[in-house]
């Protein structure tokens, strides 16, 4: 279902693709995607950007995307089932979409959670390279969007943001002090190593270190235990399970 399909149709012309005479080839795939943004394109269409499971951040035109029927479907954070078609792989292409889960509607009357959803989608839209698959990030984002309904949504958001940094190559290790190895009294982050530094060890270098920001209750519990595990030995956040596979700089979360 998720694979790229090269569809060949018997048609009279095929000069531009180099396909044998009488055959026209076009690109097509189906995937699930989270709406990152939808910008108006002309009178009735929109350019939709999705974070897809297998194809990463992908853009395409949705014909009739500005219609009354489609506008609600293309809200940020919604999970769609999408089919992308184009004549050549490098083309912008067209999306045909169907709503799987409308996350945005649930959060419209909840200011903080809506801001979190907005921020999540905006960060992904700006930070991710186009057409670069990030299946773990997709799963984590899906978990985060679902978790925005829960009470510990802020902790999920923090875990997701740290995981995103790791996914982009800026992993942080906040499990213990880079200088002393202590996991208590962490107060700074070293911009050079991306590791936490305790208050006492960091004091002489405070003007060169970044302050470790206050984190929500769920994450703070983790922080006291070195951002590793809860006392019940469970993973801290469901999103973390997707985001922090072994061996990453952020492995302290797992």
């Amino acid at each position: 279902m998720l694979d790229l399909i090269l569809t060949c149709e018997k048609l009279p012309s095929s000069r531009s693709t180099g396909a044998p005479a009488g055959v026209r080839c076009r690109m097509e795939w189906m995937d699930r995607g989270i709406v990152l943004s939808a910008r108006r394109h002309g009178e009735s269409s929109v350019v939709l950007k999705l974070l897809t499971q297998e194809h990463g951040r992908f853009a395409g035109v949705v014909r009739g995307g500005q219609s009354r029927r489609n506008r609600g479907v293309l809200e940020q954070g919604n999970l769609l089932s999408a089919t992308w078609r184009a004549r050549l792989e490098e083309h912008l292409g067209n999306f045909t979409v169907e709503l799987e889960k409308g996350h945005a509607a649930r959060l419209l009357d909840r200011p903080d959670r809506l801001a979190a959803l907005d921020s999540t989608c905006a960060i992904l839209d700006v930070c991710l390279a186009e057409r670069e698959p990030h299946p773990e990030l997709f799963a984590a984002t899906l978990a985060l969007v679902a978790a925005l309904d829960g009470d510990d949504w802020a902790a999920h958001l923090v875990a997701w943001e740290i995981g995103l940094l790791g996914e982009l190559g800026f992993g942080l290790d906040l499990s213990c002090c880079a200088a002393t190895g202590a996991n208590d009294g962490l107060a700074y982050v070293s911009p050079r190593s991306g590791r936490a530094v305790s208050l006492s060890a960091g004091e002489p270098y405070r003007d060169r270190l970044l302050p470790l920001p206050a984190v929500p209750a769920g994450a703070r519990r983790g922080r006291a235990g070195g951002y590793r595990r809860r006392p019940d030995n469970q993973r801290l956040f469901p999103a973390a399970a997707y985001l922090f596979p072994a061996g990453r700089a952020t492995a302290g979360f797992a």
Binding site: R71, E75, Q76, G77, A104, L108, D109, P111, L114, A115, L117, D118, C121
Partner: peptide, 15 residues
Amino acid sequence: NLTVDGQTTAHYLTD
């Protein structure tokens, strides 16, 4: 508008 951006604006204004 009842969109993510529209409602974010409304919440900000309420604040």
